[in-house]
Design a binder for these strands. Structure first.
Lengths: 289, 289
DNA sequence: ATCACTTACGGGTGACGTAAAAATC
DNA sequence: GATTTTTACGTCACCCGTAAGTGAT
């Protein structure tokens, strides 16, 4: 068989037209490349070049061979990345999330359940999550509602309730113990993280007259929250996770609307049931009993 | 990049299951194969095997890699044959014929016009000839009639007239000088070559009451003709070509029906005009003036 | 004179085979 | 004991780079 390096050399010559230029690009000497092309012709038993004393040019056969060689090289590169990706997928638990809350919490459990594997997390909209689940990009995904299909498993995996985060001086702070509804705060201007998944559409929908000042980075957000008097959002989950760090002096008031409580569901392909057996057991014990 | 021999080794291991069997098949020693597989894993940065002390097995990644490797090897083999075929097509004048007459005569001229090229000849029915012309299988084809298309060139290239070949004692031998028509011999039994292209359909159509004894090989045919008294066929072309060889004592009587004279036409793709310039000139000078 | 390709020559990487060791059946 | 894999070691092939030679611009 003809080795890859010969095909690479041929393609380089095709791309760079002269032996010297191609050799430079390949980081080999020009005579070495010259010999390689002779060897390739010899192996094929075919002449690939028009040669004059100081010029070498691909003939029709040579151009045709170079085109086919390029495709072979590409398919080998594809193979290499495919193999690496597949191997990596066997050694990483990859999950897609619809909101940041579970994305912050679940990896903590996952790293304990799968101590030798990498844990990768991503937030995407629902369409991309489902697509990624099918393509194998995600081992499982977290949606804000149940999702039933014949080749998937769906199981509840906790809830997250939204809170208003207010300075004590805010008039609505009086409702601290009884809670508030979206409509009571409609029209206020909020500071909000830029990337909060489905929460964003929900708040915009429930408070159509409000304005939302978006902050991309978490650092910027907390800084702005601490510095300003504008109302913001929190959730039972973030309050718990950040309790120690965050002493902003803010008070948190639960939002009473049922929409303000997400019912998260973990969705995975049935064929991957074995692979995520530990995770499934974990979720069942924690949320289904 | 990963060289081909490593992919071949992987595929062999996939096919033969054990290092020793695969090594034997590859005609290398078993330790060499062992090292190759280690090297492949190293290059990919991925483990491809489950190893026990005296057993090596492809894991999921390894099986997947082997499958992809097999496809790469196949496409490389495809490339090699494609390049060789293409090169060969540049060095052969390949023609398709509708009858044996021109197929015997034209190669004589072609080898003189293209002294460095191989000349290949084939007889096929018209549908296959036209298909082969389009696919590049044939550089040009010889049809028994004109054929006009927007991407083809068509030029007359001679005629061939059919003769009855009779023993002198045959009653119809009296027509030696004036010729005969198909109808006059309709009902006779003929000895005929098996593979005479469009001539076959013609004779069957013009003499529906006749029977035709087919002979596959030319040797068998001439033997039968010489031994039997049955009428047979000849043509001006075959008479001329075989004049020296054939002293069968037969007399040849021209068939007067216009259908008994083929008007051959050479058809080739316009894009190949350059390639067959010599041939075109030859035909023009010989038949178009 | 410079550039581009080929041929000649010597060197080093690495793939190979043989031999031996370890482990399983 | 036979088989299978891995490690060790010496050898040889082959690919490379340098140098020199030949034409063309």
């Amino acid at each position: 068989m003809i080795e890859i390096y010969l095909l690479e050399a041929l393609c380089a010559l095709y791309d760079y037209s002269t032996l010297s230029a191609a050799a430079e690009h390949l980081h080999i000497s020009q005579p070495a490349l010259s010999r390689s092309m002779q060897k390739l012709e010899d192996l094929l038993g075919v002449s690939l070049f028009d040669r004059t004393k100081n010029r070498i040019t691909l003939n029709d056969t040579g151009k045709m061979a170079a085109a086919m060689a390029k495709r072979i090289l590409e398919s080998e590169e594809d193979m290499i990345t495919a193999v690496r990706n597949y191997d990596s997928s066997l050694h990483t638990v990859s999950a897609g999330y619809c909101t940041p809350g579970p994305m912050m919490e679940m990896p903590l459990n996952l790293t304990q359940l799968y101590p030798k594997m990498k844990v990768s997390s991503e937030m995407e909209d629902e369409a991309d999550l489902l697509k990624g689940l099918r393509t194998g990009k995600y081992g499982f995904i977290i949606l804000s509602h149940a999702y039933e299909d014949e080749d998937t498993i769906c199981m509840p995996c906790g809830t997250e309730s939204l809170y208003f985060s207010l300075i004590p001086a805010h008039p609505a702070a009086l409702f601290k113990d009884q809670g508030l509804s979206f409509s009571q705060m409609n029209g206020e201007t909020f500071v909000m993280a830029g990337d909060i998944g489905v929460w964003h559409d929900l708040t915009v929908k429930m408070m159509p007259d409000s304005k939302f000042v978006l902050q991309d980075s978490l650092e910027a957000l907390t800084a702005v929250i601490n510095a300003s008097t504008l109302p913001a959002f929190a959730s039972d989950l973030t309050i718990r996770l950040f309790r120690s760090r965050e002493n902003s002096g803010r008070i948190f008031i639960k939002i009473l609307d049922p929409e303000a409580t997400m019912q998260y569901h973990c969705v995975l392909l049935k064929k991957n049931r074995e692979r995520y057996a530990r995770w499934i057991t974990f979720l069942e014990e924690r949320y289904s009993k």
